[in-house]
Design a protein around this nucleic acid. Sequence first.
DNA 1: GTCTATAATTGGATAGAC
DNA 2: GTCTATCCAATTATAGAC
Lengths: 182, 182
Amino acid sequence: MSPPHPPTKEAIRAAAAKLFPVHGYIGTSVRDIAGEAGVDPALVIRNFGSKEELFLETMRLDDELGPLFDGPIEELGETFVEYMVDTTDRLRGMFLALVRASESDGVVPRLREMHDTAFVLPLQERLEGPDAELRARLAAALVGGLLYSMWVVQDTHLLQADRSDLVKRYGALVQQLLTPPS
Amino acid sequence: MSPPHPPTKEAIRAAAAKLFPVHGYIGTSVRDIAGEAGVDPALVIRNFGSKEELFLETMRLDDELGPLFDGPIEELGETFVEYMVDTTDRLRGMFLALVRASESDGVVPRLREMHDTAFVLPLQERLEGPDAELRARLAAALVGGLLYSMWVVQDTHLLQADRSDLVKRYGALVQQLLTPPS
DNA sequence: GTCTATAATTGGATAGAC
DNA sequence: GTCTATCCAATTATAGAC
């Protein structure tokens, strides 16, 4: 039997999950979260221990892996890049928040977890061979680099480039790690 | 005629240039900088206006582009990747500090400047053709992705991988953007 | 369980004497 | 130009009443 009204803890969690990806760790105060949740600021700390603990508990992907990328492996590179480039919602905010907060040691493992969940695993599970993991991690580095260029650096030239051309070129590079030309 | 004793302004600048790359923007207080420089904290603000101005003035590459990568263009991909992967000193700290501080709007242009100076331009000046800039920027994204994976995410699998194998694989991908196979 | 009030720290920035 | 002293703002976190 779960409580009928979502307890304040869930309201706080939801508020944090909404605000952190938009305004970042530093840009989101405990008071902001409490205000968004409609509760007293003291309850935030009381329920989660500290701001950082709340941040870490909120910045995870859980199951929202979205599509399973189960199409033909010959198109996986392009498909995957296209999905990542066009993702403008939650994953983007989480990526930016985690990267920018990665000065705190506690954040790095969580960033690694997001990186593995969102970038590495979807590719790795489709690959075979002894160096499958290495190739998947290199491909994940490629994808991360594109997101870094577009969202962190905000490379205007890339942002203004033709999307389909971008996806085609970059996807082809990723594809080479997935299905290397003999 | 330059002053015989380096003025305190230079001492402050040197201290900031030393501490920011190591401890980051948030992790470095004005008092830390003053302590390192052996001056009064008030002089830091007095000479540079604000902490952020000092940060922005310090986090630039100026001329320390190091080697000019003037070898044969057929090896540029590998050479460039090798150089970036093995760079453990100043550029690495600056990259991390700028990326992690990029939540401040004023930092993004400086990050873009570093990105262009260190990653894009050395490649772009060797390329030709109408889409030379796009290819150089895509190659820069690749390089940025490798640094992101190794230094921000701290992907242990990549960090423990054989360096020469890593450089060879990743360099080959960069190379394809520099000299595309017909 | 919830809220009021406040503690405690930190850090950026300023005023004014010397 | 340099330093002492201080201000001020913001924020996390806690204590204790209800």
